[in-house]
Design a protein around this nucleic acid. Structure first.
Lengths: 192, 192
DNA sequence: GTCTATATCAAGATAGAC
DNA sequence: GTCTATCTTGATATAGAC
């Protein structure tokens, strides 16, 4: 948003990157300020200048996660022509784009770190999820299909986040195609 | 399985129950042996007699989670008549039964605790997930619908587990119905 | 804005009594 | 099989120099 000028990352961003990486590598519960500081290339004192407590760091990780998904969604909205179940297409496409790129594991792990330390830190996520559900239910031409599509992508995201996803790239492509069909065509009325 | 005679719970079971409850209440990262011991009604020494390390406790939590879902699935299989996309129906029904009863949050949190402490402890879950995907892909009449249904339930489970689920009981009932239709009828061929 | 040094505390694990 | 007491480590956070 701001510090993105020519690859020069601010300390804050370097710290957030380091923390996200570490959660994926060593587990949410082992995320220590020492490890984050070392990975980010500064001292613990320097880290604590940027984030006065571990909780504030976790809070920032969650906020960044929420913001990145949201801005990905809005970027897609700008490109997208009005279409059936638009909101569900935006949600699923935004999340899938990050899942397939492999970026999701790195970003979503902020949820694990925050949840591990203090479940209340997930409040911003809870809020987004609630809003998403309401939007899907009120604006979709086919709310059931939209809900299924969104939940399926959340299922995938959850597996990627915990690093238990058995899906190959081909599986993912096929899944994306199936979700597209579901949102475009809906659930069949006639028996198969 | 064994100690289930007339409500007389073994220490092991009381400890596992206590740990599962605590993760939901205070967060995976705050799960301490002291807290578990107190909740289970014994001393830390007594706890460490039953589980010689914290890791062995977490391992047992994961194994219990895997076993409970698996035996729920097999119980359903015994009742079910052969039908379209059977394996997907069993998976989704087993998981949904636990989600709707509210038991899921209590049980699945073992995943959070294990993942938090040591992501490798999720290996049994990884194995089950891989097996499930293979079974769905090879035995389903409609693999795409089966995969979508399974992932959707996993998405719901994930939200329940992190306590960020915005769904009402009515929402869940409707979702169950939609999943049933998807597995029975498939994705539509014609446009809506 | 970043560093070092240190205070403080919580948590896992051990030893041995009962 | 369960208890109490204790050891030891590792992690957050503070204080103050540069």
């Amino acid at each position: 948003m701001f510090g993105c000028v020519r690859g020069r990352k601010s300390s804050r961003e370097k710290i957030l990157d380091a923390a996200a990486e570490l959660v994926g590598e060593i587990g949410a519960g082992r995320l220590t300020l020492d490890a984050v500081a070392e990975r980010a290339g500064l001292s613990k004192g320097g880290l604590l200048y940027n984030f006065p407590s571990k909780e504030s760091l976790l809070q920032a990780m969650i906020q960044r996660l929420v913001d990145e998904v949201s801005s990905e969604k809005e970027a897609l909205r700008a490109q997208m022509t009005p279409s059936r179940n638009l909101e569900a297409k935006l949600c699923t496409a935004a999340l899938l784009k990050m899942c397939v790129g492999g970026k999701m594991k790195e970003i979503a792990t902020g949820m694990l770190a925050a949840s591990s330390e203090n479940p209340r830190l997930l409040e911003p996520v809870r809020h987004v999820v609630k809003d998403t559900l309401e939007k899907l239910q009120t604006t979709s031409e086919d709310p059931d299909a939209s809900l299924l599509a969104w939940l399926a992508v959340e299922g995938l995201r959850s597996m990627e986040m915990h690093d238990i996803s058995p899906f190959t790239d081909a599986d993912r492509e096929r899944l994306i195609e199936a979700i597209g069909r579901l949102l475009e065509k809906g659930i069949a009325e006639q028996a198969a």
